[in-house]
Simulated scan of single mutants.
Amino acid sequence: MEKEGRILIVDDEIGVRESLRYLLRHKYEVYLFSTGEEAVSFCQPGYFDLAILDIKMPGMDGIEVLKRLKHIDPDLPVIMITGYGTLETAQAAINLGASGYISKPFEKVELERVIDEKIRERKRKLEERIRLLQLEEAKKKLDAEVRKAYSSTLESLIKAVNAKDSYTSSHSQEVADLSTKILCGLDEGVKEEEKQIFHYVVSLHDIGKIGVSEQILRKTTPLTPEEWEEIRKHPIIGAEILAPIDFLRDYINIVRNHHERFDGKGYPDGLKGEAIPLYARIVCIADAYHAMCSDRPYRKSLGKEKALEELLKGAGTQFDPEIVKIAVKILEKD
């Protein structure tokens, strides 16, 4: 007959151990130990389905055995055996994680009821944990597929933007690299996944230019007020493109707010100071720096030294003064 589980029994009295063995041997595999030290050294995570411990034992007492077994297997149900005068200690054991207690002398029916209940509860929790792990794994696979699908769509949009304005392609990647360096300079403990998504979204910060006229993007003379108004729409368009993508939700502000100014005179929302999301404040600096260091149809590159000077001049007006100080130190070494 197949056993319904493994039970660990620890009691210094041989009579109690053998009584429990006799009562439980038909349904369970029973492992008997006379000392807590032996039981603890034998126990392994997930091996036993339940433990029964005497409270009063020489050497390592039941409370200490309980603590150590819970350290080895936190989910192991533990039932304490109590005698006269140990009910208070049994309650203390429950506070430490014991599942319950039985009093000596114990009744076979009550003993089996308690054991069956605790073992079923343990198995149910294990099954729930397995289901959760399976669901998490399925979600990861689905997320990967969704990301891949969205990435393909975004790549197509990026290619369309690049076809309109070749500067945008190299600019976006360079700004993503610079922004990520600044982010890591601000927070050395930034998680790898956060870093990767941040870099990816920054590379998309100008994707909204898909909605801007090619004639305006390639214009070599000063823009008219109407043309400037159209250019200023690209952060909103970009944010709307990314809005349906759940895994980018916390990063969309990069696209929408990278043209905000610390003094509140930026666009599209006119945010001021720390009301501007941190990611956007970082990208604003990297975006401006790379633009100043690049040759454009309407002007030559300012050069690295002059661009860094301009960043510091803009501290507190265009840029976050604290972030720009750190950014300049990082960009000086770049």
Rank of each mutant, 00 (worst) to 15 (best):
V255R: 09
V255H: 07
R256C: 11
R256Y: 10
R256D: 07
N257P: 00
H258R: 10
H259M: 14
E260K: 10
F262W: 15
F262I: 11
G264E: 11
G264A: 08
G266N: 08
D269L: 15
D269E: 15
G270L: 12
K272H: 00
E274Q: 04
I276R: 00
P277G: 11
L278C: 04
I282Q: 03
I282L: 15
V283Y: 01
C284Q: 14
I285T: 04
A286W: 05
D287S: 12
D287P: 13
A288R: 11
Y289G: 02
Y289L: 06
Y289N: 00
M292W: 10
C293Y: 01
C293N: 05
S294T: 15
D295H: 10
D295A: 08
D295T: 04
R296P: 07
R296S: 12
R296E: 15
Y298C: 12
Y298R: 14
Y298I: 13
R299E: 09
K300S: 04
G303R: 04
G303W: 05
G303L: 06
K304N: 11
K304R: 14
E305F: 00
E305R: 02
E305D: 13
A307G: 06
L308A: 05
E309P: 00
L312N: 05
K313L: 08
G314K: 03
G314R: 02
D320Y: 02
P321C: 14
I323D: 02
K325Q: 12
A327S: 15
A327D: 14
A327L: 15
V328Q: 09
